[in-house]
């Protein structure tokens, strides 16, 4: 009996020390991140978003990942690209993978990853606004027809000076020539659905709006741009939120209002020595034509 207890104890201790090793390994990984052992001949980990994400839609179009061939649209994304279903998942994957490249909303770039210059232009609110930084897309609120009084009032708030202040605070690019908003004292329930990329800014806008209109309650579901457009078309919600421009077929039934612009930053791991890429290189990497980092800095 004693023997057994001894054996078990030793196992537990072994497990414990393994746990210790585990955390040690974790730490050493953290250290290698600082010490830089970047092997440029390694394969690039291409990270993209799920099909139909608003961010991916905009990125694919601007970077020519989806191209027209013989009158058909063909998605050329590298077949082994890692696909993730949210803005933060891209950053998390890039953060723990030395050889990764991904793209994410400019407002979501954290200090744990590095944003690259594209064609020599840094991704900032200013360069997006001036049009120098090319990878950007609008944030759109869409209503069916003109929308009800409450939606109209909310949209007029969002595009007003007060609303645009919140847009700027959250790291997005505001509109020019906004007017002041005064509350019309409306009440009721407003429902929105759509893009996950707009979450940060729209939550802020909601708070500010409710401060001015305490009798209004707002419910927001984040499901993705296409789902938001579908929901508002079907009348499930009052306003659809999109992080890409509406398609012509969608514009036929919906009224879009652009309320902000957002740059799409191309991000890599902090350990990556590279500081910038050209759009042509980005296209090559995301279509799988270029597989290692060593070719990229040429």
């Amino acid at each position: 009996m004693k023997k057994i207890i001894m054996a078990v104890l030793s196992c537990v201790i072994a497990a414990g020390s393994m746990a210790g090793c585990g955390t040690a390994a974790e730490k050493s990984q953290g250290q290698t991140t600082q010490k830089s052992s970047f092997d440029a001949s390694s394969e690039i980990t291409v990270i993209s978003r799920e099909a139909n994400s608003g961010t991916r839609g905009a990125f694919d179009e601007l970077m020519k990942i989806v191209v027209e061939e013989n009158g058909q649209k063909v998605d050329k994304l590298y077949s082994e690209a890692v696909l993730v279903d949210s803005t933060d998942a891209v950053s998390s994957k890039v953060e723990v993978d030395k050889y990764a490249i991904g793209y994410t909303s400019l407002g979501s770039v954290t200090d744990k990853v590095k944003a690259l210059t594209v064609d020599g232009i840094e991704a900032t609110a200013a360069t997006v606004k001036s049009g120098q930084y090319k990878i950007s897309r609008p944030f759109v609120l869409a209503t069916k027809g003109d929308g009800n009084a409450l939606s109209k009032d909310f949209i007029s708030f969002v595009t007003s000076n007060q609303g645009q202040k919140a847009v700027e605070e959250k790291g997005f690019i505001k509109l020019d020539g906004a007017k002041d908003y005064t509350s019309a004292g409306l009440s009721g329930k407003l429902t929105l659905s759509g893009s996950t990329s707009v979450e940060k800014v729209i939550e802020k806008l909601k708070e500010e709006y409710i401060k001015l209109n305490p009798n209004v309650s707002i419910e927001i579901t984040y499901s993705g741009s296409s789902a938001g457009i579908k929901d508002v078309t079907e009348g499930k919600v009052d306003i659809g939120m999109s992080s890409r421009e509406l398609k012509d077929s969608e514009k036929a039934v919906l009224t879009p209002t652009i309320f902000a612009h957002d740059g799409i930053a191309v991000i890599v791991n902090k350990e990556n020595p590279l500081n910038g890429l050209t759009s042509a290189q980005i296209t090559k990497i995301f279509t799988g034509e270029q597989r290692t980092w060593s070719g990229a800095d040429k």
Binding site: S86, K112, E199
Partner: peptide
């Protein structure tokens, strides 16, 4: 009839779109 989140859903959504604060 309202939509909301349970703790597990809150954790899931927070890992998706909340940035560092979300994590």
């Amino acid at each position: 009839m309202d939509s909301s989140r349970t703790l597990a859903v809150h954790m899931y959504i927070s890992t998706r779109d909340g940035g560092m604060a979300g994590r």
